[in-house]
Design a protein around this nucleic acid. Structure first.
Lengths: 162, 162
DNA sequence: TATTGTTATACTCTATAACTATA
DNA sequence: TATAGTTATAGAGTATAACAATA
């Protein structure tokens, strides 16, 4: 049964979030390309490194879940990072089918550099104050935790970095 | 929350916004696909229709700028919408090179339906309260206005819907 | 038989370059 | 010559399907 009235009144603002998210993500990827070229990385590499730094060693299947990406995409992503020595793949002893992935020291250092570059880009591009930026981060964080739980549920999972 | 107040107002938070935006936009596109399939539309069609509804008649070159997309992408986008009768292209009398684009009545009706579908998806997916959702909208709105002005400037332009 | 990771492949999204018609 | 739109094409980005190794 559909409860349309509560739905409209209690929650959503008049306008949609999706067009803004779509727009900002597209612009971001385009702008970040230039800043990340010296590192031979793309935004999704940064996402993957961030997850590995914050969550530690993970199986590739868990990476796939945490990043909301297909497993086949993860393979290519990790290949890029491994060829630069930023991550390591290790056969898991308990289950030899599994490749455990972890960030290397070089990966951590690289991530820190990239982090500074992207932070600068965000500041220039979004023009938000520190407070606004923090508030936005927290809201996106909450939305992400919810989205990571599944499309129809609001399960705040530990699937994404804080 | 720890000593967050020690941050000066101009500094960014410790963590990056970009990975979250990238993640959410990717998930959103994937999830919205199912909801939008009955309409034969994608998220970017919704963005385009929203812009046309809010800003009125526009040249294609202006659409390109407003959407932050290459002009060639706009052509295919508008072809899709025109073939469904949701928008119209008219030769501009003053400058016959130009195609002015405007949303049709059918387009407005379709957009309203789609709007409801996406709003429901956002609520299920992001699990935000009405207040949070509104706050997030306003922050994304501000970031979008800034980003529309250019990568290095904070010019709040009239380029994107309010 | 089911699961982890991989390869091969195709489809979607976006950008670059060349063409047309107007100015 | 320059600009608005279009076409053709190529390149990312992501997903689907079949396969190998292991459980």
């Amino acid at each position: 049964m559909n409860d349309r009235t509560t739905f409209n009144d209690s929650s959503a603002p008049d306008e949609l979030l999706s067009p803004l998210l779509d727009y900002l993500a597209r612009r971001l990827r385009a702008e970040a390309e230039a800043d990340l070229r010296p590192f031979s990385l793309k935004i999704r590499h940064v996402v993957a490194l961030t997850v590995l730094r914050d969550l530690g060693e993970r199986a590739q299947s868990q990476m796939s879940e945490a990043l909301g990406m297909d497993a086949t995409g993860i393979v290519a992503l990790l290949n890029d990072l491994e060829s630069q020595g930023l991550i390591e793949r290790r056969r898991a002893a308990q289950d030899r089918r599994r490749h455990n992935v972890l960030i290397t020291d070089a990966g951590c250092r690289r991530l820190a550099e990239v982090h500074r570059a992207i932070a600068g880009l965000e500041q220039r591009m979004f023009g938000l104050t520190g407070q606004e930026s923090t508030a936005l981060y927290q809201l996106l964080q909450k939305a992400t935790a919810s989205a990571a739980g599944g499309p129809a549920e609001s399960v705040a999972g530990e699937d994404f970095p804080h």
